[in-house]
Design a protein around this nucleic acid. Structure first.
Length: 219
DNA sequence: TGAATGATTTACT
DNA sequence: GTAAATCATTCAA
């Protein structure tokens, strides 16, 4: 697994180290997020999303992401500079999470990018399970070898246990962060599910791993 | 206070 | 292919 650094586990912590694998993943630093949103969206593909809760660790490879560039972007929640309690994290510092609830039943997970005051974010739309598949399958109520476990923005949140309590948290440290991963072949296409956004619909701001079986299917 | 709606998923025809 | 599920957030009044 390229980039997932293996470091020596500190003595005392070694005993209660994460059960499945002693390898540790280092959070990407804030500089990764403090770049233009399209660049971050593209560079997310192949990175690892790590969620530690208690002594359980879930790891998944990001294979699909979309850029949302408010306030100009009609498809973005921050369109027109709309700054509310919900969208507040997007106006803050890069490297934090923006998690929102949609359609009465699903959570969606975003990375805040760019500069403070620029409400730009990257929606993570699909991941491939890397570690902790059993728990993900249990949460999703599907077999562990089915791509339906995480091939959609709402599905991956359910699988990884991401919800509203994570909105606004810092992604540059545990329990939730990105780590380096493999470099994958990337395809660029228009975004999904934003038909109302007029001429912004056609912008090719969706990036995905060309070969991945876990990329979501447009409606 | 109330009504409209959505960066989705699922089940059903 | 179409539609239902289901509710926080938002905006109008």
């Amino acid at each position: 697994m390229a980039g997932a650094r293996r470091v020596k586990t500190p003595g005392a912590a070694g005993k209660r180290a994460l059960s499945t694998d002693p390898a540790r993943f280092e959070p990407l630093d804030r500089g990764f997020y403090e770049r233009p949103v399209l660049t971050v969206a593209r560079d997310c593909i192949g990175k690892l999303l790590v969620h530690q809760s208690g002594r359980t660790r879930l790891v998944a490879r990001i294979v699909e992401a979309e850029a949302y560039r408010g306030p100009q972007d009609r498809a973005a929640h921050s369109y027109g500079g709309r700054r509310t309690k919900r969208t507040e994290p997007m106006f803050g510092r890069a490297g934090h999470a923006y998690v929102f609830f949609i359609y009465g039943m699903h959570w969606n997970f975003n990375l805040v990018t760019s500069k403070i005051g620029e409400p730009h974010a990257v929606l993570i739309r699909a991941v491939e399970p890397v570690e902790g598949v059993e728990l993900m399958a249990k949460r999703r109520q599907v077999a562990r070898d089915r791509r339906e476990i995480s091939n959609g923005p709402g599905k991956l949140c359910q699988a990884l246990g991401i919800s509203g309590k994570h909105t606004g948290i810092d992604l540059c440290k545990p329990p939730l962060f990105l780590a380096d991963g493999a470099k994958l072949s990337i395809t660029r296409r228009p975004r999904v599910g934003i038909d109302y956004a007029e001429d912004w619909v056609a912008k090719p701001w969706r990036f995905y791993a060309t070969k991945s079986e876990y990329v979501s299917k447009p409606r």
